[in-house]
Design a protein around this nucleic acid. Structure first.
Lengths: 345, 345
DNA sequence: GTGAAAGCGCTAACAT
DNA sequence: ATGTTAGCGCTTTCAC
């Protein structure tokens, strides 16, 4: 008379029937509500569940509880490109996954081609929360209560004033200031700022301001040496090739290591020696810095910290409804390697 | 008398009520079952849904249909580490996400610390499918119908005979053979194979066999020059430092670019010139190869192809129940750069 | 072309 | 300590 149980999926009901208890009891056991069930029953239910290979259905649970233990990681992505163009972004993705897993959350990784997709991505899976990585401040700023609904959101590297997305970022201002001061201390005066186009708010803007601040600190007039380039090796390389023809300079601060490495190589190919003729400082402290020649002096971001802090802000927000009023700034430091040297007389 | 609708979530029912039609009609409209609904109704329902900001609940749908349009990407991860240690792995993750999104699937990224977690990870979210990336052949081989249930699985870079996980991999044998032949053609004879420990099956084993094959092809006795090192820059560097003391060799084939770069640097620091004294060939063709000095000669894997093929195998399996009997092998090619040169007399 | 009923697997809120 | 009753939001029959 024993019913042939379906091979498809073991349900709570089946476990309950086999164990001769109610579904609720099994549910309580599975969820560790050990206070509500007698030790004997716990053991029995546990055993039967294991035997049957019971795995709870996340969708059913999520439908019933309106929570999912799912966090979305949203990354901008042109439709054609793979997402995560930068090594820096890639590294953070991995760190976030680990951190979330530690707390029993799962990660939904999602490339977002059009800003409108954010709302859909956020709500369709009833995400408990989401982390925005690498979006423009403007895009982050445009997020409203309406679009994100009940989802808790944290933005990484955003300077948007949006209260809904308060998150973490490195101290970009201090980092650039450190870099420029280092160069200034070495006697450099004609220093180029190389980075992507920027507006009045955002990571690059901060770095630009910090860069200028170092000059002000030293009471030195700020040379208006700026080159706008995308953050890629290729564009850096191209720039490096013509840099000496275009400007009379002795040092370069690039807003990213990749860019800096490209510049160094361009310079080298053009017959300009680094650091003897021109010093170069990057930003990020990718592994890459140690692999190139000369090893790159750079501003180190503590991405492990940045990622784990972002996650803990998010989880506090989800679980306790608390969140910092202001974004959390992660300290940076200068790592001196071989691409900088005193200016030549 | 108009009911205040909850701010929490717009449901199908609400849209139906507002539109004065049944839930089913709305459902049909939302799912593009346009044949079953009159044009006028379609337009009306669509408009109201947009106004209300309706977003379907993925959990509810998934619960009802037993499908989720969710694919898991499983990557091994020691509990302490971030996952995705290698740049190669990181790049593939991004490519897979893009490919899945193109077909309307979502990606659940999951680090797996203990093999047992695979089953749980696979089934709890009623994943339609999963991609295994970077697991040992042994772990892949151990997967049974019981543990993976109804989930379609594809393994990348696996040489396991497991029919349940048939996937894609680069032609590791041919790649190593290409590398060795290149070195042989340059006149090298004492060539070291540097890579991680391996058993009788798997990526590294294939590369080792391909390496040996090139010697056989040329009718040259195979020198038993092997060093076992983990695939990291640090271990490569360490090895490079002592290589010349330990072996009388003129060339090295490393099973990964990262490793090769470390070796080159170790060699250089020890006063051995690359490629004048020793030639080095890597494997993967990471961007990194172009950033180091000398630029690294290597075997290029077509990871874009590897990723997109893996996805299309998976989706065919999910949607049509068809899958290749044998793993799909992706062609590789040799990229000659600056780290190899003719052997010196 | 459209609707009503039933149920996917689970849990919250009450019973007992 | 354990069971019962109602849904969560959607889709799948099967009617009309």
């Amino acid at each position: 008379m024993s019913e042939r149980r379906p091979r498809v999926r073991v349900t709570l009901r089946e476990v309950a029937e086999q164990a001769g208890v109610s579904m609720m009891t099994v549910s309580n056991v599975m969820n560790g509500n050990r206070a509500r069930v007698s030790p004997g029953t716990i053991e029995k239910v546990q055993r039967i569940a294991d035997e049957l290979g019971y795995v709870p259905s996340a969708s059913a649970r999520s439908l019933a509880t309106k929570a999912s233990r799912l966090v979305g990681l949203l990354v901008p992505a042109a439709d054609e490109d793979s997402l995560m163009i930068s090594p820096h972004t890639m590294a953070i993705v991995g760190l976030i996954e680990r951190e979330l897993r530690k707390y029993g959350y799962h990660l939904l990784l999602r490339g977002v081609a059009h800003p409108d997709e954010v709302a859909e991505a956020l709500r369709s899976w009833s995400l408990d929360g989401a982390i925005l990585l690498g979006f423009l401040d403007e895009e982050v700023g445009n997020l409203t209560k309406k679009t994100i609904g009940a989802v808790h959101v944290v933005a990484i590297d955003s300077y948007s004033a949006n209260r809904l997305t308060t998150g973490t970022r490195s101290d970009d201002f201090a980092g650039a200031r450190l870099a420029a001061r280092h160069l200034l201390d070495l006697g450099h005066r004609r220093i180029l700022f190389a980075g992507p186009a920027f507006s009045g708010v955002g990571v690059v803007h901060e770095r630009f301001e910090g860069f200028g601040q170092a000059f002000a600190d030293a009471g030195i007039p700020h040379p208006e040496l700026v080159e706008t380039v995308n953050t890629t090796y290729a564009e850096g390389h191209e720039l490096g090739l013509v840099l000496r023809e275009r400007h009379d300079l002795t040092a370069v601060f690039a807003t990213a290591d990749i860019l800096a490495v490209g510049i160094v190589h361009g310079l080298t190919e053009a017959g300009v020696r680094v650091p003897q003729d021109v010093s170069v400082v990057g930003f990020d402290d990718l592994d890459l810095c140690n692999y190139v020649t000369p090893k790159l002096t750079t501003v180190a971001q503590d991405i492990t910290r940045k990622a784990s802090t972002a996650v803990s802000i998010l989880l506090d927000s989800i679980e306790k409804g608390e969140r910092p009023k202001r974004p959390v700034t992660i300290d940076v430091s200068l790592v001196e390697r071989e691409s900088t040297a005193p200016v030549r007389n």
